[in-house]
Structure formats: C-alpha cells, structure tokens
C-alpha cells in the first residue's frame, strides 16, 4: 500500500506541478520569475503586472463571452437533440432503429475535422463564416454521436414499468421523455456535458478556420494569438495562461465528484 501511495504521489506531482509553476509565477515580478522560478510568490516578489497587461491589451472580456455563448449553446443543442434521439432509439421498436443508431454513432470514429473543406464550403454558402452560429452548428454535430451513444445505453436501463405507468396515467410520449426519463438520466447528462464541453471550450481548429474575426474570436484562439504577440512579455504570457486555467479548474473542482460518479456508474464502460 505504501508503494502504491509513493507511485501515485509521484505521478500526481508530475501532473500538477507544471500547472502550479505557471500559476505561481504569474503572480510574480519579472525579476522574480527568472531569479527564483521555483519559489512561491512572496512579499518581495508578488506582482500583478502580468494580469494588468492582459486585461488592458486583449479584448478578453469579449473573447470570454464568445466562448461562453458557443460552449453553452452547443451544449444545450447536444443535450437536447442527443437525448431526444437517444430516447427514440432506446424506447421504440421501428424498422430503421439499428441502422439509425449505427449511422449516428459513426461519428464517434471519424473526427469532424476531416470534413473541414466541405464545412467551410457550406458555411460560405450559408453566409455563416465569422458567426458564432457556424461554430455552434459544427460543435453540435460533432458532439451528437457520443451523446447519443452514452445516453442510449443509459436510457435502456430505465424501467419499462415506469414509462408504462406514465402511459396508463395519460402522459404523452413527449411528456414521458421530458418529465420521466430526462430527470432519471441526469447523472449521464452531466457526464456527457463535461466530456463534450472540454473539447468545445478548448478547440482551436474551427475558431481559426470558421470564425477568426475579432468580434467572434473565442478565448482559446484569442489567448493563442495574444501569447504569440507577447512572447517576450513573460508576465503577460503567464497571466494569460493562468486566466485560461482558473475557470476550467474551478468548474472541474465543483463537478469532479459528479463527474467521477457519472463515469463509474456505468455510463461509459
């Protein structure tokens, strides 16, 4: 057991320390960053100059808002449409059931980026280039396969008796989906939400290609370009990186308990 802890502590250090160094040094003066990179920020070295530079220069407020809109809207679309399709596939016997399921799950194996040429063509034709709508559509489409797969598996485990009781009590099929089944698959939905949210928030490829304009820039793209411009201003770069770390880590610490329970409760096996 002691050996196990030793290995786990060692690997935990490998995982966490690099992140810690970034965050730690973002609060230090330029001199302190280079003189004693491994030291914690102290009274002599504490400095927020990096953060003031970032907040003054970049339009980070607007980037952040764009990312938030894109991520939340995509998530809403994936959960709503994905759970509806999953319900139909899990609940009803119909001729094309298996085929539809296979078709929708094909996307798990094929990265949507391979269709970029065609997607750009489509967005140009629809006058959607440099709009957040373009990003949302792409993320909804790319998130659906996993959502449908996981939620279908999960919805199959819900008792038929319960749904039938609803039918006997006069609920419509829509009410059974929305009012009986959705509340019961909440843990699975939380898992799907976290797992689809991360790649959307972090994506660089589609913002770069479909919405590189200043007004539609996401935080990931904005940070990448900001850091590219300010490579030599270490304070600013470290602060920008830390600003990218905080929200994700904060959300993660809030949801991690549910997340792990969601994964281990059989949603992903």
């Amino acid at each position: 057991m002691l050996a196990a802890h030793a290995v786990l502590i060692a690997y935990t250090a490998v995982a966490v320390l690099p992140v810690l160094f970034i965050v730690m040094n973002s609060f230090k003066s330029r001199r302190a960053i280079f003189l004693a990179p491994l030291a914690l920020p102290g009274p002599g070295s504490f400095d927020l100059v990096g953060y003031t530079t970032v907040l003054k220069t970049g339009a980070f407020g607007s980037y952040f808002a764009n990312s938030l809109i894109v991520t939340l809207a995509s998530l809403a679309g994936i959960i709503a449409f994905g759970s509806m399709a999953a319900f139909a596939l899990a609940e009803y016997r119909f001729r094309l059931n298996t085929l539809t399921a296979l078709y929708l799950m094909l996307g798990i194996m094929i990265p949507i980026r391979l269709g970029t040429v065609g997607i750009l063509e489509l967005m140009v034709a629809g006058h959607l280039v440099n709009t957040l709508v373009a990003l949302i559509l792409v993320y909804v489409a790319s998130g659906l396969p996993v959502a449908v797969f996981v939620l279908t598996e999960f919805m199959r485990t819900i008792s038929d008796d319960l749904k039938n009781a609803g039918r006997v009590d006069g609920l419509s099929e829509y009410e059974i989906y929305f009012w009986l089944v959705l509340p019961l698959v909440r843990p699975a939905i939380a898992t799907v939400a976290v797992f689809t949210m991360i790649p959307i928030w972090n994506d660089l490829w589609f913002p770069l290609i479909l919405a590189p304009g200043e007004a539609t820039k996401t935080i990931t793209l904005g940070a990448q370009q900001f850091i590219g411009q300010y490579v030599t201003d270490w304070n600013a770069v470290l602060a920008a990186l830390s600003l990218g770390i905080f929200p994700v880590v904060g959300l993660y610490l809030i949801f991690s308990k549910n997340l792990i329970r969601g994964i281990t409760s059989g949603a992903v096996k």
Binding site: F81, A88, V117, G118, I119, L122, L144, E173
Partner: peptide
C-alpha cells in the same frame, strides 16, 4: 400514431447529416 419517433430523431439526424456527413462526403468528392 408514430410521428413522435420522427420528431425525436429529426433534429439530431438533420444537423448531424448536414454539418458532419454531407461535408465529409463533399470533402471526399472534392
């Protein structure tokens, strides 16, 4: 009446097809 099955499936199938599958094949075609 079985229209609800179509209603449940339509949004997912349409978006997935239009934004993922069609562009993918368009890319292969190009």
């Amino acid at each position: 009446n079985r229209t609800h099955i179509v209603v449940f499936l339509a949004p997912a199938v349409l978006i997935y097809t239009a934004v993922m599958i069609v562009p993918l094949f368009e890319t292969l075609r190009l």
